[in-house]
């Protein structure tokens, strides 16, 4: 075999290996989803969704966990959205060159790399204990809000950055103040990107388990929460609880709950992608 033949062979072999690796991840994902559907799909019915938790696997439902997740979703959105978007606007539009902004930026990059369970420890000491909120929904959502803040801020900045400066120039040249320009031009033009980032961040929050366990979300909550100060559990914790039990029936339950959790996660990701595409299509500079 000549050298160039050998090279060509290596080249082709790598090509096949490359396809295989790309497909590997997706095949695993497919197996995961298939296995979960196979195990859990038949378990899902209306009772499963509306039943309260129970020691007996067949009777147990996800109602309290699902409601907890919905509460967490809304509270986290309400807290993280204004703070994250506001911080993003500040960094992108106001503080660009200042030392303080530069410092904030490094800090945010660092926060993005802090493991989620550490945020749990923070929430436990500050929100649960110092603020005396206990293991409440509010303590949980505050903790998750801090956790997703870096994601919201970074994606908000990306979206704002995409707005061409010619639009801002036109606005200020007409006598608009800085905030008027941001409010009337920059934000409307970037709303798709901002929302995409926020939705993705919240969908991440919904899948989080560890920080909520640390702040004291319970494995067993007899009733669905009815106010932000109530104790709660969420879907991932319910799943974790069921996975940890040896009986097969509970594994079936957890697979069924995973289907619902994945449905929520993928739906939110789908909505985010939809928004992004719509936004990109609407605004072509």
């Amino acid at each position: 075999m000549t050298n160039s033949q050998k090279n060509k062979l290596i080249d082709n072999a790598f090509k096949i290996f490359g396809v295989a690796c790309t497909l590997f991840g997706l095949i695993i994902l497919a197996i995961l989803i298939y296995d979960i559907l196979k195990t859990g799909l038949t378990r899902i019915d209306w009772d499963f969704i509306t039943n309260l938790p129970s020691r007996r696997a067949q009777k147990a439902g996800i109602y309290t966990a699902l409601m907890g997740t919905v509460w967490i979703l809304f509270l986290t959105a309400i807290i993280a959205f204004p703070i994250g978007v506001g911080a993003g606007i500040y960094l992108e539009e106001y503080g660009k060159k200042s030392k303080w902004a530069n410092f904030l930026e490094i800090n945010i990059a660092n926060l993005a790399g802090v493991p989620s369970i550490i945020y749990g420890l923070l929430g436990l000491e500050i929100f649960v204990r110092a603020f005396n909120l206990g293991g409440s929904l509010l303590a949980g959502s505050l903790t998750l809000s801090l956790l997703i803040l870096p994601i919201v801020i970074v994606s908000t900045r990306e979206a704002l950055k995409a707005v061409p400066s010619s639009i801002k120039d036109a606005s200020v040249a007409l006598g608009a103040s800085k905030w008027q320009t941001i409010w009337n031009q920059t934000l409307p033009a970037s709303v798709g990107g901002v929302l995409t980032g926020v939705i993705l961040a919240i969908s991440r929050a919904i899948g989080e388990t560890a920080p909520l366990i640390v702040v004291g979300a319970l494995a067993y909550v007899p009733f669905a929460p009815s106010s932000p100060m109530d104790e709660f559990t969420v879907m991932p914790i319910q799943i974790f609880n069921w996975v940890s039990r040896p009986q097969h029936e509970f594994a079936v339950n957890s697979a069924a709950a995973i289907i619902i959790l994945l449905l929520i996660t993928f739906m939110m990701n789908g909505v985010a992608v939809y928004y992004r595409n719509k936004w990109q299509k609407k605004i072509k500079w």
């Binding site: 010619s166 200020v172 040249a173 006598g175 409307p188 033009a189």
Partner: peptide, 20 residues
Amino acid sequence: IEELRKEVGMVFQKPNPFPK
């Protein structure tokens, strides 16, 4: 500045209408 710019308008090199 905002008052000044009400008196002194500007048209730019590339048309830059707002996406509205």
